[in-house]
C-alpha cells in the first residue's frame, strides 16, 4: 500500500506540470488582460505595467520565470488585489472555505447515506419514496435557489438566523452549511441507494439473510462495504470541490472564502491568481482521488493483491 501511495505521489508531479502548462497557455490566449480598463489608458502606461510584471516577455519565457518562482514557493503577486501575494489571498480564504466545506460534507454524508440506506432496505415502498423525494428537492432546487429561499424563510420571515456572514453573529454558519450540504446530500442519497440495492440483491446477502442475521448487522457488516463504492468514487472530486469552495454559496451569504476566486480571477484575468487557485485545486483533486482509490481498494479486499501485483 505504501508503494502504491508513493507511486501515485510521483505521478502527481507530471499531472501538476501539465495542468500548469495548459492553464498558462489558456489564460494568455484569452482576450483581455489584467490591465484592460473601461477607460482608455495611454499605451505608455500599459507598456510600463507589462514591463513591471514581465508580461512583455515571450510567453514561454514568462512560463519558465513563473515555474522557477513556484518551485521556490513564490506564487507571485495578485494582479487584481495589488500588493497581495497569491499565497496571501488563498491563505485568507482557505480556512473559511475548509470549515464550510467540512460542515457541508458532514451534513451531506449523514443525510445522504442514511436516506440512501433506509430507502434501499425496502425499495418501492413509502420507506423508499419519502427519503428519496426529500433528496430530490436538493437536486430540483439548486444552491442558487435553495440559498436565497432559506434566507428568505429563516432569516427574513422567521428571523431565526442571520442573512449573511461567517462567524460574525452566532448561527450565521448554519444556512450556508445546509445549503451546500443539501446539494451534495441529494447526490449521495441517490448513489448510495443504487449501490446498496445492487449489493443487497447479491447472493452473499441472501445467504446472510437466510442465516437469520438482523438487518442492521447485514447493512453494517456486509452491505455498506460494497454498497458505498459509487459514493466513494463520487466523493473524490466532490470533496475537492467542496474544499475549494462554492462560488454561489459564498456569494449569496457574503462569505470571504476562496471559492469565488475560481470564477472572479478568471473574469479579472488575474493571471497569477488563476494559476494559484488552479494549482491548489489540482492538488486537492490529486489527494482526494488518491484517497478515494485507497478506500476503493479497502472496500474490495480482493483488489489489494492485484493492486500490489500490477504496480
Amino acid at each position: 500500500m505504501i508503494k502504491f501511495i508513493f507511486i501515485r505521489l510521483l505521478q502527481a508531479i507530471p499531472v501538476l506540470l501539465i495542468v500548469m502548462t495548459i492553464t498558462f497557455v489558456l489564460i494568455h490566449a484569452a482576450p483581455g488582460g489584467p490591465f484592460s480598463a473601461e477607460r482608455a489608458v495611454p499605451p505608455e502606461v500599459i507598456e510600463a505595467l507589462n514591463a513591471q510584471y514581465n508580461l512583455d516577455d515571450p510567453v514561454h519565457v514568462q512560463f519558465f520565470i513563473y515555474l522557477n518562482n513556484v518551485l521556490h514557493g513564490d506564487f507571485g503577486p495578485s494582479f487584481k488585489y495589488t500588493g497581495r501575494s497569491v499565497t496571501e489571498v488563498i491563505a485568507a480564504g482557505m480556512p473559511i472555505t475548509f470549515e464550510l466545506g467540512l460542515y457541508a460534507m458532514l451534513i451531506a454524508l449523514i443525510l445522504g447515506i442514511s436516506a440512501g440506506v433506509i430507502a434501499s432496505l425496502k425499495p418501492n415502498t413509502m420507506q423508499d419514496y419519502v427519503p428519496m423525494s426529500l433528496a430530490m428537492t436538493g437536486i430540483c432546487l439548486p444552491t442558487f435557489v435553495m440559498g436565497p429561499l432559506m434566507v428568505l424563510v429563516f432569516a427574513i420571515w422567521l428571523d431565526w438566523l442571520p442573512v449573511s456572514g461567517w462567524g460574525y453573529i452566532p448561527g450565521d454558519k448554519i444556512l450556508p452549511s445546509l445549503t451546500l450540504g443539501f446539494a451534495y446530500a441529494a447526490y449521495i442519497a441517490r448513489l448510495s441507494r443504487g449501490g446498496m440495492l445492487e449489493i443487497l440483491s447479491q447472493d452473499f446477502i441472501r445467504t446472510a439473510r437466510a442465516k437469520g442475521l438482523s438487518t442492521a448487522a447485514i447493512v453494517f457488516r456486509h452491505a455498506l462495504r460494497g454498497g458505498m463504492q459509487p459514493v466513494v468514487s463520487f466523493m473524490g472530486p466532490a470533496l475537492a470541490g467542496l474544499l475549494s469552495g462554492s462560488f454561489v454559496v459564498e456569494t449569496i451569504f457574503q462569505i470571504p472564502g476562496m471559492g469565488r476566486y475560481f470564477v472572479q480571477a478568471a473574469f479579472n484575468r488575474d493571471y497569477t491568481l488563476i494559476l494559484g487557485t488552479t494549482i491548489f485545486f489540482a492538488t486537492l483533486i490529486i489527494i482526494f482521488n488518491l484517497l478515494a482509490d485507497i478506500v476503493t481498494v479497502w472496500l474490495n479486499p480482493r483488489l489489494r493483491d492485484s493492486s500490489n501485483s500490477s504496480n
Binding site: I7, P237, A240, A266, T277, T278, I285, I286, S310
Partner: peptide, 27 residues
C-alpha cells in the same frame, strides 16, 4: 485494464478536472 493504462487514463481525468473551466469556456 488497470495498471499503467489505468494510471494514464485516470491522471488525464485529474488534469481535466483541474483546468480552469471559466477560462476554457471564454476561449
Amino acid at each position: 485494464f488497470g495498471g499503467r493504462v489505468d494510471a494514464f487514463m485516470m491522471r488525464t481525468v485529474d488534469i481535466l478536472y483541474a483546468l480552469p473551466f471559466t477560462i476554457f469556456i471564454i476561449l
